[in-house]
Amino acid sequence: MSLTLSDVKRIANLAQLDMDEAHAEIALNELNGIFALAEQMQAVDTSGVAPLSQPLSAIMAQPLRLRDDVVTEENRREDYQAPAPKAQDGLYLVPKVIE
């Protein structure tokens, strides 16, 4: 299976990456090269095999660890907001959000 230019544009849109025609063309070739590699996976019989999303769960149970419900954070807005590209009155500013 190989991608089309419209696939590439749809993905770029989902990923919020600005991409002009020329770049989309290049991306298309690169992605098809990479997905050519992926094709050999389809031949592998994985029926009855469970996906392994946490490596160590291959050998041990890994239940999610839970935190006690206590407030541990204090207000450090000045620190945390220092790297903001645009902020005012403690708010992060972005181009108008229309709902």
């Binding site: 403690g90 708010l91 500013l93 972005v94 181009p95 108008k96």
Partner: peptide, 11 residues
């Protein structure tokens, strides 16, 4: 959505 010079504020 109150206007911050044409921008929105995020809390």
């Amino acid at each position: 959505h109150e206007d911050y010079a044409g921008m929105s504020g995020i809390d």
